[in-house]
Design a binder for these strands. Structure first.
Lengths: 248, 248
DNA sequence: TAGTGGTCTAGACCACCAT
DNA sequence: TGGTGGTCTAGACCACTAT
């Protein structure tokens, strides 16, 4: 049924390995929306691990909103296509896969400028889905990175490789945390160019802020403007404990 | 040091009891920002429970962004004041507490209208912080609820009691899940009335959608418009496993 | 009744940080 | 070196769902 096996020798935690496998199968349609993924006991026996470890892996899927656990029934794939993981713009490729779309990146600006702490890479990308005719762009992503920290970064082709992929593979830096601020951006020449004319739209939702790695070192300043055609859903589920309101 | 004790007889899970206690102490300043909460082993010994249970409680705080765990150092309070829990509008009171502000609710509309499935309660509230002079309103919250499901709901005073508090205490309904859509709302008579004139602001961020209870029954339709003076931060932290981008 | 997820125990070993 | 959080095992009992 599956050729997949966990590797206890791998430094990657077992729950992460299992999580990645399950996530992959959900995104590629092996476990379609509405269906149950294998039960916790089944995965425990299949992989020879504890149910605690299985539950840890599944809990990551739950917190991502990819599955829902229902006692007595099972763990059901409840993929809500455009959810708050959109904020995690690093995951645009995964997002595209789940939409069964091919991601397209167009680099609008890739230049080196002098910043307060030395030269910086200014990278402006339009990201969207491929179509038969012209691509549909869904967001407009502006990044600023210190070249003193990432020497040579300005030479990569960011239409072929994602920024985070390059950072991970060539600079061994993985973004771990972001602090974004939401605002409303006005229409501009750039938004008209990327999203087209949007009559009746007073502005665009914009998330801007900083991204940090596991050592709390600044990775990039970023600003993402979202297309109005991207229906952004913010799904929140909280257990009985979380976010109950208490009388004032 | 603490008079607090977990009650194993309570049907509330132990990890939820501990979570609530820790959360309370963080919000009221017992554990100030930057300080560490007690270590996992300390809480294990103090309450006579397993470290697994302690970790379960702490993991809820982590997913809320209230604390950050650093190996070798401890679990530090890293309260980021205005984070994505703003979306969980049910938690406005908690949010106010963390800001060391007193929450104020002004009911703008409370009326019964005929809806597609019978009479509905239409509730429009401005919510904000109390000041010495006039309150500062931070959001504009419109709710629609079916009166056939919540008979008598139209008689409550929602300036004194929160909607979710009433639902929980009088109808035994607890919201568990929401599905919100983000959009940009235009300035209107209502926003001018509540937020005042906002020159240069093209629109307001608006989250609208539905809220469900644990049985997936619809609780309310809701729409929340956020004041531009509310700096909305969306903090995301993902472990090495979550949201890594894969080459396209 | 059999199977599912929900909670909890009582350990173990490890990597990392402070001293 | 001692304490912290990170991972994992091997169970147990429960509540709920399907049949």
């Amino acid at each position: 049924m599956t050729e997949f096996a966990l590797d206890p020798q791998d430094s990657t935690p077992l729950y992460t390995q299992l999580y990645r496998d399950l996530r992959q199968r959900i995104l590629d349609g092996t476990y379609p929306e509405g269906d149950a993924i294998p039960s916790e006991t089944a995965m425990r026996d299949l992989h020879g691990i504890t149910r605690s470890t299985v539950r840890h892996a599944v809990s990551l899927l739950v917190s991502e909103g990819l599955v829902r656990q229902i006692r007595g029934k099972g763990t059901l794939v409840t993929y809500t296509p455009i959810n708050h993981s959109v904020w995690n713009f690093g995951g645009f490729t995964d997002f595209s896969k789940a939409q069964h779309q091919r991601p397209v990146t167009k680099v609008l600006t890739q230049s080196v400028e002098e910043g307060p702490r030395g030269p910086q890479l200014l990278l402006v990308r339009a990201r969207g889905f491929a179509n038969d005719d012209a691509p549909t762009y869904l967001n407009l992503d502006t990044s600023v990175l210190e070249l003193s920290r990432f020497p040579g970064l300005e030479r990569f082709d960011f239409e072929r490789h994602s920024l985070y992929q390059v950072l991970r593979e060539h600079y061994e830096v993985a973004p771990v945390r972001n602090e974004l601020k939401l605002s409303v951006a006005l229409s501009s020449e750039l938004t008209r160019q990327v999203f087209g004319e949007q009559p009746g739209v007073p502005g665009f939702i914009c998330a801007s802020g900083e991204v940090y790695d596991s050592s709390d070192q600044l990775v990039e300043h970023t600003s993402v403007i979202y297309s109005p055609s991207l229906e952004m859903h913010v799904g929140t589920s909280w257990n009985g404990a979380v976010n109950e309101s208490v009388p004032a």
